[in-house]
Amino acid sequence: MNKSLIFYNKIGFMTLLKREIHRFMKVSVQTILAPLLSNILYLGIFGGMLQTREVGIEGINYLYFLVPGLTTMGAILSAFQNPAFSIIAQKFQNTVQDLNSYPISDMEKSLAFILGGTFRGLLVGSLTYLATTFFVGYTIQYPLFFFISLAITSFIFSSVGLISGLLLDSFEKMNFVLALIITPLTYLGGVFFEISKLPGILSKIRYINPIYPLVNITRYTYIGVYEGNLLLQLLTAVIFLIGFFLAAVYIFKKGFGIKID
């Protein structure tokens, strides 16, 4: 077998991918049900209190505006947590070095972790959407692109999660990144309100917030309207997709966090 090939052990790759999926499915109450219930609570609280709130998009009810934001947020947080938690848990158990002996390429290893996180993010995002149908119905403007957008968002933040898991060495540091960086960026990414309505410099955050274009793209596929330049946001999403994935593969290949010096 030639390790220079991207895929030279498909069975090994699928085994690692299935392990990653099985790992979070074994504790589905924590990994799937908990974030799903949190999103439904957000919908109930914000939707109930602000359902008569005017959205700066003519003809759009606030609940319809909120749904794609919640599905994107659920996908982002779940996709990030999966590979980050998996790698750091192996560090804690002192088994992470075993990854070096797996008879699969670095690309296959990286992709297995990322696709595992992508599946979890897409699952949470999709289930969030299904749960919201009891409140707003089943209408999606572009159904196929809606789920593709969730998958792309999940893939991007699963790649970020893998990078974080490799570079960080404790759950405390992972939770710091999640709680003080990703979550605030999510809230300021247009999940609950239009960014253009923020006062002063806060409205400019969208230009440096990587989550904003992803939320906006998903909202467009759901209700058919958007803020800002959609083509630029699509280009940004593609750059994030390629950039974070290649960065994750590079860091994995260099052995940061998994190889003993």
Results as ranks from 00 to 15, higher is better:
residue 121 G to Y: 01
residue 94 N to G: 02
residue 138 Y to N: 14
residue 130 L to V: 10
residue 148 I to E: 12
residue 116 G to A: 05
residue 107 M to P: 01
residue 105 S to P: 08
residue 86 S to N: 13
residue 116 G to C: 03
residue 142 Y to V: 11
residue 86 S to H: 11
residue 102 Y to R: 08
residue 102 Y to C: 05
residue 97 Q to P: 01
residue 157 F to N: 07
residue 154 S to Y: 01
residue 128 T to P: 05
residue 118 T to N: 09
residue 124 V to H: 04
residue 153 T to L: 05
residue 129 Y to P: 01
residue 120 R to K: 13
residue 135 F to H: 02
residue 151 A to L: 15
residue 115 L to K: 08
residue 91 K to T: 10
residue 142 Y to G: 08
residue 110 S to V: 11
residue 143 P to D: 10
residue 120 R to G: 00
residue 154 S to W: 02
residue 149 S to V: 07
residue 138 Y to F: 15
residue 132 T to C: 15
residue 149 S to Y: 10
residue 125 G to K: 03
residue 154 S to K: 04
residue 152 I to N: 14
residue 95 T to M: 05
residue 99 L to N: 12
residue 139 T to Y: 14
residue 133 T to D: 01
residue 143 P to F: 04
residue 157 F to G: 10
residue 137 G to Q: 00
residue 107 M to E: 06
residue 90 Q to M: 05
residue 118 T to E: 04
residue 152 I to S: 14
residue 146 F to G: 03
residue 143 P to M: 09
residue 127 L to P: 03
residue 153 T to Y: 09
residue 119 F to T: 13
residue 121 G to V: 02
residue 138 Y to R: 10
residue 113 F to H: 13
residue 116 G to E: 06
residue 125 G to N: 07
residue 99 L to P: 06
residue 94 N to C: 00
residue 130 L to D: 00
residue 96 V to P: 01
residue 102 Y to I: 14
residue 147 F to L: 12
residue 86 S to R: 09
residue 102 Y to T: 13
residue 103 P to V: 06
residue 136 V to G: 02
residue 129 Y to V: 01
residue 111 L to E: 09
residue 146 F to M: 08
residue 134 F to N: 04
residue 150 L to A: 11
residue 88 I to H: 07
residue 89 A to R: 12
residue 150 L to S: 06
residue 91 K to D: 01
residue 125 G to T: 04
residue 118 T to I: 05
residue 91 K to E: 04
residue 136 V to H: 02
residue 93 Q to F: 07
residue 100 N to R: 13
residue 130 L to S: 03
residue 121 G to R: 00
residue 110 S to D: 11
residue 149 S to W: 08
residue 147 F to K: 07
residue 115 L to N: 10
residue 141 Q to K: 15
residue 119 F to A: 12
residue 89 A to P: 00
residue 128 T to H: 05
residue 123 L to T: 12
residue 87 I to K: 04
residue 87 I to L: 09
residue 95 T to N: 12
residue 120 R to I: 03
residue 112 A to H: 13
residue 145 F to C: 12
residue 142 Y to S: 15
residue 106 D to N: 15
residue 148 I to M: 15
residue 151 A to M: 15
residue 143 P to V: 11
residue 100 N to W: 02
residue 148 I to N: 07
residue 131 A to L: 09
residue 143 P to N: 09
residue 150 L to Q: 10
residue 120 R to S: 00
residue 96 V to S: 05
residue 123 L to F: 09
residue 111 L to S: 14
residue 138 Y to Q: 12
residue 130 L to A: 10
residue 111 L to N: 12
residue 127 L to T: 01
residue 106 D to Q: 12
residue 94 N to F: 08
residue 125 G to W: 00
residue 141 Q to D: 14
residue 103 P to R: 08
residue 133 T to Q: 06
residue 114 I to L: 12
residue 93 Q to I: 09
residue 146 F to T: 03
residue 108 E to K: 12
residue 93 Q to D: 00
residue 89 A to W: 10
residue 103 P to W: 05
residue 86 S to T: 14
residue 134 F to R: 03
residue 94 N to T: 08
residue 137 G to F: 02
residue 155 F to H: 09
residue 119 F to D: 03
residue 121 G to A: 06
residue 103 P to E: 06
residue 134 F to M: 08
residue 93 Q to L: 06
residue 142 Y to K: 14
residue 156 I to N: 10
residue 152 I to Q: 15
residue 152 I to T: 15
residue 114 I to K: 10
residue 108 E to G: 13
residue 133 T to P: 02
residue 110 S to E: 11
residue 125 G to M: 04
residue 144 L to E: 11
residue 128 T to Y: 05
residue 133 T to S: 09
residue 89 A to K: 10
residue 110 S to P: 11
residue 145 F to A: 13
residue 149 S to Q: 08
residue 131 A to N: 04
